[in-house]
Nucleic acid binder design. Sequence first.
DNA 1: TGCCAGGCCCTCTTTAGGGCCTT
Length: 204
Amino acid sequence: MRADTLVILDFETTGLSPDQGDRAIEIGAVRLVNGKIKGQFQALMNPGFPVSSFIEDYTGISNSMLSEADSCQQVMTDFSDFIADDNLVAHNVAFDRRFLDAELKRLGKHLNGEFSCSLLLSRRIFQDAPSHKLGELIQFTNIPSSGGFHRALYDAQMTSYLWMAMLDSIAERYGLFDLSFEQIQKLNKTAKKSVDKLLKSWCA
DNA sequence: TGCCAGGCCCTCTTTAGGGCCTT
């Protein structure tokens, strides 16, 4: 059993950089408890300005949908309550963390949980994957998918399945069934060529 | 005026450059 409780999250945003004025437009997240999904959160949020046609096409989230959504302030307040003090995972967490920090900073809130990254872990655990994009990793690991990527809750759900597939792969290959969040963070920071040695060192 | 993200990670590297990943 995996004792860790995690929140796996994904943002859809108006662009790539909160420092350039971009805002979140959707948050999706699932809570994993002992390797099972035990809760979820999804909400659109109105960034206060129109999103580009690129973002409308990329996400399927239209300006019309956003005009009826709650404010970023309201949604992020609710989401902050949802994540509480749990540790957090995202696919390319550097991206999602920038937006999470930026939106919470506007509310005067800060995080207590630690972060880990499914993208960094996948580059180490699935070194043979042709690509480490979320959608292609889902295909690579034969996880069933309806192809609804680029919506926040769907991507968060798929990331959670990928996360469990990576832990299963580690368990299968090394007999390590109960990696701690701290150990996974250490894997995130370990050079690819040294990951095998590190995992073997934990087997004893 | 012109430009516009940032962190990871590899290599033809470390006094750097460029691809990958996220929207």
